[in-house]
């Protein structure tokens, strides 16, 4: 039994199965974060007073994190390019770099959280901190998920490069689509929470 279109594109739809699958998943993710952004807007417009993010949060650290995530996005896409150029060694470097940058992002995030807790700024303090911790926490979970997938493709998952390079390249494309989406979410989170 062979499931069709796991590698090749179906002629009438123009995509292979996993590509359609990941875009559907990302569509559901848009609705997930959409609901949280909607909540943010409702809580903020309904609040008597709402602090500017930069008065409470650490903008330089978050800017650094933005740079880290953008950099990890380009290493991710470069790892895909490397595979298409049949350069497995370069691929390993780039995908490994992506995972490391994910770690750097999480460490910086942890420093930020730690500083908040030190000043007794917990989610229960007010609705601004509540939405801040919920949105960044959920985003952080997405980063962790992406790192696990990418680490798998750096390590054990990369064996497929030998047996079926075309399918493996597709997998990296799909993993990349997810990783860029996580970056995309941060691009909106950053100004909304920190700068406004």
């Amino acid at each position: 039994m062979q499931i069709p279109y796991t590698v090749a594109e179906r002629p009438d739809t123009g995509v292979f199965n996993a590509k359609l699958g990941i875009w559907l998943f990302l569509a559901s993710e848009v609705m997930l974060f959409g609901a949280l952004f909607s909540s943010y807007i409702l809580l903020r417009t309904g609040a008597l007073a709402w602090p500017h993010g930069y008065t409470i949060l650490n903008v330089p650290l978050a800017t650094l994190n933005t740079v880290v995530l953008i950099t990890s996005s380009i290493t991710m896409v470069m790892s895909w390019v490397a595979l298409r150029n049949r350069d497995f060694g370069k691929y390993r470097k780039y995908i490994g770099g992506t995972v490391l940058l994910g770690f750097v992002f999480l460490i910086i995030k942890a420093i930020e959280y730690g500083a908040k807790f030190e000043h007794h700024l917990y989610p229960s303090e007010n609705t601004f901190l509540a939405i801040y911790f919920t949105l960044t926490g959920l985003h952080g979970l997405h980063v962790i998920g992406g790192m696990i997938v990418n680490a798998y493709f750096w390590g054990p998952g990369s064996k497929m490069w030998v047996t079926d390079p075309e399918r493996f390249t597709n997998r990296i494309e799909v993993a990349g689509l997810y990783w860029h989406f996580v970056d995309l979410v941060w691009i909106f989170l950053f100004p909304v929470l920190y700068l406004l």
Partner: peptide, 20 residues
């Protein structure tokens, strides 16, 4: 997904004491 988001927020309200 919006209900999943709402569920997470209600969990935050119940466990972390937030006020969504």
């Amino acid at each position: 997904p919006p209900l999943e988001a709402a569920g997470v927020m209600q969990l935050m309200d119940r466990l972390a004491g937030t006020s969504f």
